[in-house]
Amino acid sequence: MRLDKFLKLSRLVKRRTVAQEMAEIGAVRLNGRQCKPSAEVRGGDTVEVAYPRRVLSVKVENADEAALKRGAAAYSVIEEKQVSQDEKPW
């Protein structure tokens, strides 16, 4: 599944266009690397999302679109750390 679609279906980001913009500016990393919105997400991958005040690291549990639409658990949280507004997470 595409990264932007996973972020939207897992409810980490509210809109797919916002997920695409976040990936393009480098606020999303897949397995520690900056990537495009079209990058392929698979089960077991690590996704890091930099929000304005925090960085959330999650492990992908389920990357099946149909299962996510039915409400299956998409991820488990690995780490969540707070970041000051002045600090750039990456």
Rank of each mutant, 00 (worst) to 15 (best):
S57C: 13
V18D: 03
A66Q: 15
G44F: 06
R29P: 03
A50R: 10
V18S: 10
A67T: 11
M22E: 05
E40R: 15
S57R: 11
L68S: 09
A23T: 10
A39I: 09
Q34P: 14
R54V: 02
V60N: 01
N31G: 06
R29C: 02
N31H: 12
P52G: 02
R42Q: 12
L30P: 06
G26F: 02
C35V: 02
A39S: 05
V28C: 04
V18E: 07
K36H: 05
A39G: 07
K36A: 13
N62C: 15
V58Y: 10
V41Y: 06
R42Y: 09
D45A: 01
P37H: 13
K14A: 11
G32A: 07
G43T: 12
S38M: 04
R11G: 10
A23K: 02
A27S: 03
V28P: 09
G32K: 04
P37I: 00
R16N: 09
G43D: 09
A67L: 12
S57Y: 06
V13N: 02
A66R: 15
L30W: 08
V47G: 04
V60W: 08
A67S: 10
M22L: 12
L68E: 09
A19Y: 12
V47L: 15
V13C: 06
K14S: 10
Q20I: 07
V49G: 01
V47E: 11
A67W: 13
R11E: 01
R53H: 02
A39C: 07
V60Q: 11
R11L: 07
L56H: 04
V55H: 05
E40H: 14
A66P: 10
V47C: 03
L12H: 01
E48D: 14
A23F: 01
